Simulated scan of single mutants.
Amino acid sequence: MAVIAFTPHLRRFLDVPEVDSPATTLRAALEDAFAGNPRLRGYVLDDQGHLRANVVIFVDGARSDDRTALADPLRPDSRVHVLQALSGG
């Protein structure tokens, strides 16, 4: 199963353990995580269901550029990391 890990920063606000998901797409895996913790959705997605501007997701070490459909394919052994996007210098 794919594993979804969330930034430790969220632990200040929510219980965010790693989630195992049989999903084959990023969106479906995130929905599995949200099913176990509905409040998490608002930290990751905006009101249109798109990835928030301050969030970045890596699938198997590659940054996901699909911020709307979140249709990145997942393998059974995929690792997904949901992080805060940082800017500045």
Rank of each mutant, 00 (worst) to 15 (best):
M1D: 08
M1A: 08
M1V: 05
A2I: 07
A2V: 12
I4L: 12
A5P: 03
F6H: 04
T7M: 12
P8Y: 15
P8S: 14
P8F: 14
H9G: 14
H9A: 15
L10T: 08
R11M: 09
R11L: 15
R11S: 08
R12N: 15
R12M: 13
R12C: 12
F13Q: 09
P17Q: 15
E18Y: 12
V19P: 06
V19F: 08
D20P: 14
S21T: 05
S21Q: 07
T24S: 10
T24E: 15
L26G: 05
L26K: 09
R27T: 04
R27D: 04
A28N: 07
L30F: 05
E31A: 13
E31V: 07
E31M: 09
D32Y: 06
D32P: 05
D32E: 08
A33R: 10
G36W: 13
N37S: 13
P38G: 11
P38T: 15
R39W: 14
R39L: 14
R41Y: 03
R41K: 06
G42Y: 12
G42E: 14
Y43Q: 07
Y43A: 08
Y43W: 14
V44E: 10
V44T: 06
L45C: 05
L45T: 07
D46C: 02
Q48F: 02
Q48I: 01
Q48M: 02
G49S: 04
G49N: 02
L51W: 01
R52V: 03
N54A: 13
I57D: 01
I57C: 01
V59M: 00
G61A: 09
G61H: 04
A62S: 10
A62R: 09
S64D: 03
D66Y: 00
R67K: 11
R67T: 01
T68Q: 10
A69L: 07
A69Y: 06
A69P: 05
A71H: 13
A71D: 13
D72V: 01
P73F: 09
R75H: 10
R75T: 13
D77T: 10
D77Q: 11
D77E: 11
S78M: 02
R79H: 10
R79F: 03
R79N: 11
V80N: 02
V82K: 00
L83T: 03
Q84G: 05
Q84E: 07
Q84I: 09
A85L: 11
L86H: 09
S87L: 13
S87G: 11
G88S: 12
G88A: 10
G89C: 12
G89W: 08
